[in-house]
Structures are given as C-alpha cells and as structure tokens.
Design a protein around this nucleic acid. Structure first.
Lengths: 160, 160
DNA sequence: TATTGTTATACTCTATAACTATA
DNA sequence: TATAGTTATAGAGTATAACAATA
C-alpha cells in the first residue's frame, strides 16, 4: 500500500464517540451485574431512575426526553414495568391523551434497594479516579451535550 | 410522600453513565445522517473504522475487543460487510481457525469518502467546545476507561 | 482439552409508519 | 388539523449456549 492510500482521519482511538462509548462501557460493566440481579435492562433502569428525579409525575413525552428513548421503545418498557407493578399511570387532569407516570411503592422499594449498591460502585469509581476530578468530568460532559443544540444538524445533510 | 421515602442516590443528571450516554448521543446525532447516507449502522462503521487503525490486518477476536462488539454480533457484521465487498478475509498463516481481516479497496474508498465529512463535523465540535479542551476531555475519558481494569468486577457479584 | 469463530435462539431496542383518541 | 401515545413491522444488536474445526 502506498502512502497515498492512507486515510486522512484521526486515529480510531482519538475518536470522541469511541472514547465516550469506551468509558461508558467500562462504567456499565460495573453496574450491569447489579441490574441483572433484578431482571432489569439498562433502558428499564434508566426509566425507573428518571422517575426518581424531580419533577414527577411526568408524561411519556417528558420521560422519553430524559431517558433518550424513542416513543415506541418507551411504550413497551412502560407496559413491561407497569405489568411488574413497578410504576403507575393515572390520567392527566388537563389532557386525556396523556397519563402521568410515577413509581409505585414497589418500584420505589426496588430503586431504594438498588441504590446503596449503586452508590458503592460509584464510590469505587470516585476512589480510583478522584472525586473532584470526576465532578469536573461530569461538568464537561454536560457542556459537551449542551453544545448539541447550537450545532445545526440540518446543515450536515448537504455538507459534503 | 414523607421525607423518609426519598431515595439516597445521586440525582439522575449527576449519573456518570447517563452523562456519558447523553454526550455520546449528542455527538452521534451529528454523525448519524452521514452514516445513513451510506447505509451503515453505527456498529458497522465502528468495524470499518477500526480496520483503518494499525495494526492490521487483524483477526476477529482482536476486532471484537477494539469495537466492543460481542463475537456473534461481529460475526454477522463481518458477513454483511464482506457481502458488500467492503472487507476481505484471508486465512491466517499460522492458525487455520482464524482469518485475517482487512478493508478491501472498495472499503478503503468508502471510509476515505466519509472521512472529510467526519473531520468537518469534528471540527465543528472543536470549534464549539475548544480544541485543547476536547483533547483534555479525551484524555480523561481514556483514563476513566482504563480504570476499569483496576476495579475487580467479580467483587461486585456479592457486594450487597 | 482448550480455543477460535460461527450458528441457533430468544429477547430487546431502534426506527419509521400507521393508527387511535383527544385537543 | 395537530398532537400524544400506542401498535405494527422490519431490521439489527445483545447475550448465552451449542457447535464445528483446529490447536
């Protein structure tokens, strides 16, 4: 292969999406066994977890945004979790198309039972990486994610 | 709900896995249309991308590690990409169970044709976030991922 | 016997579109 | 007419186990 065949592109290891995936993968490897013990997928856990955050109860649209799940995926997950009595839905007072979703007592108990172990794993990461350093990293990640809105995705369609 | 019902857990927004997912999601939203134009899934692109990195050619096991794909997933992806003539397999000289995988000319052309747009999107992120700041973030992510090996996953099994 | 890679199987998520009920 | 949410459908990845070929 001649030098001209080399592709003008940053190394695979310097790719931001890969670095994010890799970091997430290594973090999730820690958390996954914990979720498996309770027969929860990552996405199901994300939904339960999101329901512990203010404000609640929330409608499905809000929940989809918080969890980065598409509406159809979320619909099925909600049906599953409701079938396991982990969450409740009640009609929205102002709009009969929506319902307001919240954890059931059982769901809250489940999350509460997982919380200590989750925190323990978290402390382990903090211990290895540094607490303040981790906080700074989280801040940077949030700012990076927020950037998204400034960059116009439509502009990428024809940019070639 | 009484105060006692509150769950002792960091806020959803302060969760490291969520922050990583969110950041990745916002980055991928930029890159996805580009991949869709070439009928590539994220995972297929990851494989092609990994094959541009030294050293190559590689066997399937090495490729699975680089791309964070499980062997069965990778098998199907390799079959797909080989069917589209984007990569080639030749027998491993020392071990007939393995094969050595590399991009075909066509595959290299495809990656090369995508590269400029990919770099452009990358520059857009650098512009919005800061080049050196992004480099620091990448370093931190790599160190976080490397931590994984220090933390004993087996210890999580019984930690309750 | 152990290892590499593929195939089998069941489940879940993704993604788009069609549909229902309500606004 | 537009919106919120569900259902339909096709495609793909995840995960575990079983398997074939080779070491």
């Amino acid at each position: 292969m001649s030098d001209d065949d080399r592709i003008a592109m940053r190394p695979f290891t310097a790719s931001l999406p890969m670095a994010l995936l890799q970091a997430r993968e290594s973090a999730m490897r820690l958390f996954r066994p914990m979720l498996a013990e309770h027969d929860l997928t990552e996405q199901q856990w994300r939904v339960l977890r999101a329901l512990t955050s203010e404000p609640f109860p929330v409608d499905a649209g809000e929940l989809a945004e918080r969890t980065f799940l598409l509406a159809p995926s979320l619909s099925r997950i909600l049906a599953n979790l409701e079938g396991r009595s982990l969450l409740e839905r009640r009609p929205h007072p102002d709009d009969q198309r929506r319902s307001l979703i919240s954890l059931s007592d059982e769901g809250r108990e489940l999350v509460a039972s997982v919380a200590p172990k989750s925190e323990e794993l978290y402390h382990r990461i903090e211990h290895g990486f540094g607490r303040e350093r981790l906080e700074r990293l989280l801040d940077e990640l949030h700012e990076l994610a927020a950037l998204d809105h400034q960059v116009d995705p439509a502009a990428t369609e024809e940019a070639s």
